[in-house]
Simulated assay, not measured.
Amino acid sequence: MLKLQNVSKQFDKKVVLSDINLDIKTGEIVSLLGPSGSGKTTLLNLILGLTQMDQGQIIFNDVDITKTPMKNRGFNIVFQDYALFPNLNSYENIVYGLRNKKGLVSDQELQEYIDFLELKPHLNKKIGELSGGQKQRVALARTLVTKPKILLLDEPLSALDGVIKESIKERIKSIAREFKLTTIIVTHDPEEALTLSDKILIINEGKISQFGTPSEIINEPNNRFVEEFILKQLQIKRHNIYNLFGEKYA
């Protein structure tokens, strides 16, 4: 569905991404994982079209969209801070992106999104009255109603914790499955990537260290960086990893 070929990017002569090649299938959840400054957010912005690459190609459904403007790509993003309008209530935020797209979704479809994310009791609340998890669900609904071809999420769980984080994680999985929606997530947290994703792209210093399933990355790390980054970060989050991969890595 989405193919990146030899993608590279520099800022002020500093190489941020170098020769990135990636294939993502329809409906997959793929996490872009790496330490701060590794280039994962830049890669997300290149896919979105917010930033232009220096070289390489982006192919979507066999069409070269490298030079296609962001507004014409049909992708959409939920930002880390949700970017909701505090002066509008939840419902007004959800339908905001439809104001110039009459007929994009029917009233029935809109209601289905609201019901799917269990937002009906919160539609008349202002954003300041919502919890972090409720804000995240409103941001997801606002994005879903525009029927994106790819859903991009920038650190979607970083402001959440505990039960709320696990709930949103399950929502994201359900969205991808229910709508067959290819989903790309930026995260710095290996536990989030391992428990949320079908595939994980680990980036270090602008280059791909490994691309594979959670099981492949845990059991067959490509290099020392992958092994140390993953296992060191996971030592304080053992229970989820035990549930996924057993005693060896818990």
Rank of each mutant, 00 (worst) to 15 (best):
112 E>S: 09
106 S>H: 09
59 I>T: 05
30 V>Q: 09
91 Y>W: 08
122 H>T: 05
166 E>S: 12
150 I>F: 05
55 Q>V: 05
9 K>M: 02
138 V>Y: 02
74 G>F: 13
209 S>L: 03
201 L>Q: 00
231 L>I: 04
115 D>C: 09
173 K>G: 04
113 Y>G: 03
227 E>D: 13
153 L>R: 05
193 A>E: 02
110 L>Q: 09
99 R>L: 00
64 D>V: 10
189 D>T: 08
81 D>K: 11
34 G>R: 01
134 Q>E: 13
189 D>F: 04
21 N>Y: 10
56 G>W: 06
19 D>C: 02
56 G>E: 05
162 G>A: 15
74 G>V: 01
18 S>T: 09
31 S>R: 03
165 K>R: 15
142 R>T: 04
29 I>G: 02
106 S>E: 05
246 G>N: 03
177 R>K: 15
188 H>N: 14
44 L>T: 01
165 K>A: 13
104 L>P: 06
245 F>M: 01
77 I>T: 10
15 V>Q: 15
232 K>E: 15
224 R>K: 14
159 A>W: 07
115 D>G: 10
156 P>K: 08
82 Y>F: 12
41 T>S: 15
144 L>K: 12
208 I>L: 11
20 I>P: 00
69 P>R: 07
93 N>A: 06
170 E>W: 09
104 L>F: 07
106 S>W: 11
56 G>A: 02
148 P>Y: 01
38 S>A: 15
122 H>I: 06
248 K>Q: 09
196 L>K: 01
188 H>R: 07
100 N>D: 12
11 F>W: 08
108 Q>H: 12
153 L>N: 09
34 G>M: 06
191 E>I: 12
46 L>K: 01
85 F>A: 00
8 S>E: 06
144 L>G: 07
8 S>F: 11
245 F>I: 10
144 L>D: 10
131 S>G: 05
11 F>V: 11
219 N>Y: 13
148 P>I: 04
61 N>E: 15
197 S>W: 08
31 S>M: 08
150 I>P: 10
14 K>N: 14
179 F>H: 03
81 D>A: 03
214 P>A: 03
228 E>I: 12
4 L>S: 04
135 K>N: 02
148 P>S: 00
78 V>P: 03
132 G>E: 00
118 E>M: 12
29 I>W: 03
187 T>E: 10
31 S>L: 08
119 L>I: 09
110 L>H: 08
55 Q>C: 10
178 E>M: 02
126 K>A: 02
3 K>T: 13
85 F>Y: 15
235 Q>I: 13
179 F>V: 00
185 I>H: 07
125 K>S: 13
79 F>L: 12
210 Q>F: 05
222 N>G: 00
234 L>K: 06
176 A>Q: 13
131 S>R: 07
13 K>T: 13
225 F>V: 12
181 L>Y: 06
38 S>C: 14
6 N>G: 04
22 L>R: 01
231 L>V: 02
245 F>E: 02
226 V>P: 04
237 K>P: 08
186 V>F: 11
130 L>K: 04
189 D>L: 10
68 T>V: 14
79 F>C: 03
220 E>H: 15
229 F>T: 07
193 A>W: 01
164 I>R: 09
144 L>T: 06
127 I>W: 10
66 T>D: 12
96 Y>E: 04
121 P>D: 07
68 T>P: 01
209 S>T: 04
192 E>V: 11
246 G>H: 03
198 D>L: 11
84 L>V: 07
191 E>T: 14
244 L>Q: 14
19 D>Y: 08
111 Q>R: 11
